[in-house]
């Protein structure tokens, strides 16, 4: 069995450029972490209900719900994955009732639109509320009676372009609240986010813009003192041809007669259209693989551990998620 590269991490933040599949990776990571009897919480903060769709369950409320059993491994019973859809208004009300005995004033805040104001308009507050709840899930508040203690929390975070701002809660509030309880709260959260108990993983695909954005994201995270985790390279094309064959395919020198003979032996009539098609497809594939390899070299130069996930031709269903989870576990992200 492989061991995890991130044994100290309790908060896994998963970010990435739009369209790279960060939600899929976050879900697979949660399943992978939940093997060996571990209990994991998977959080989403962007109101998309993506978790509910991936796991094929009803839309999630603001409440921790058990949604899946962790990845099964040979030696021990799997743990569980719970999910939480964090909604800023509910988080604010929960926060207020947990920390301040506001009573009637709390209801008045809601009635006068303050809650709505704070969560949709007031700059930065929305992010602080979302990250605040994530923080609470990692470091359970003693006032939250009966809450589950998780071994790990996975956050399906906003995209790379926003991740720094999102996690840098104290900076975001700095211009607004220099002292006071909210500021103290933000500072405590930052201590966790900057510690080695947190890792920010970046999801990319092997294309120019996402790889560039990943490199920029890593630099920005480091500059902000936030711990960079691994790079997860998602949607990797199948690697069915050897380097030699790829080179031949690119050069158009694959042995046509051999292909025809093989096809005949395999039981298909090797008509010209079919063989031409296969050779053209091979060339197209080889060109893309060359581009992927160039991008992969750039990822390797980023000097962080990287993990690769295959593109599943049929798309990612629940079974596919477990397949990806097993791959992540095998490679040591979990």
């Amino acid at each position: 069995m492989t061991t995890s590269d991130w044994p100290h991490v309790r908060l896994h933040v998963v970010t990435g450029k739009g369209g790279t599949g960060k939600s899929t990776v976050a879900a697979a990571l949660a399943l992978a972490l939940a093997s060996h009897g571990k209990h994991v919480l998977l959080c989403e903060v962007e109101g998309r209900q993506g978790i509910a769709r991936m796991f094929d369950v009803d839309p999630l409320p603001y409440e921790e719900r058990r949604i899946a059993t962790g990845l099964a491994t040979d030696d021990r019973a799997p743990g569980t994955v719970h999910a939480l859809h964090i909604d800023p208004e509910a988080a604010l009300l929960e926060y207020l009732s947990m920390y301040y005995k506001l009573g009637r004033a709390g209801r008045a805040l809601d009635r006068f639109g303050v809650i709505e104001f704070a969560t949709t308009i007031a700059p930065g507050v929305r992010d602080v509320l979302l990250t605040g709840k994530v923080f609470e899930a990692v470091r359970r508040n003693s006032r939250n009676k009966g809450a589950i203690d998780y071994d790990a929390v996975v956050l399906d975070a906003p995209p790379t372009g926003r991740i720094n701002q999102f996690l840098n809660v104290s900076d975001e509030l700095a211009g607004l609240a220099k002292v006071g309880p909210v500021k103290n709260q933000a500072d405590t959260m930052m201590t966790l986010f900057r510690s080695r108990e947190t890792a920010v993983h970046l999801v990319t695909v092997l294309e120019e813009m996402p790889v560039q954005e990943t490199a920029d994201g890593i630099a920005d995270l480091r500059a902000a003192g936030l711990p960079v985790g691994g790079v997860v390279v998602n949607l990797v094309r199948p690697r069915d041809l050897t380097e030699t064959d790829l080179a031949a395919a690119r050069a158009g020198t694959l042995d046509r007669a051999a292909v025809e003979a093989d096809l005949r032996r395999g039981g298909v009539d090797p008509d010209a259209a079919l063989v031409d098609g296969l050779l053209l497809e091979a060339r197209d594939h080889a060109e893309r693989r060359a581009l992927e390899d160039a991008q992969r070299a750039l990822v390797e130069r980023m000097d962080v551990p990287s993990y690769e996930l295959d593109r599943l031709a049929q798309g990612v269903d629940l079974g596919g998620l477990y397949e990806l989870a097993a791959s992540l576990r095998g490679q040591g992200l979990a």
Binding site: D240, L241, L278, H285
Partner: peptide, 9 residues
């Protein structure tokens, strides 16, 4: 190689 081409296809 041919098997590879067929899988790609």
């Amino acid at each position: 190689p041919t098997a590879g081409l067929l899988r790609l296809h």
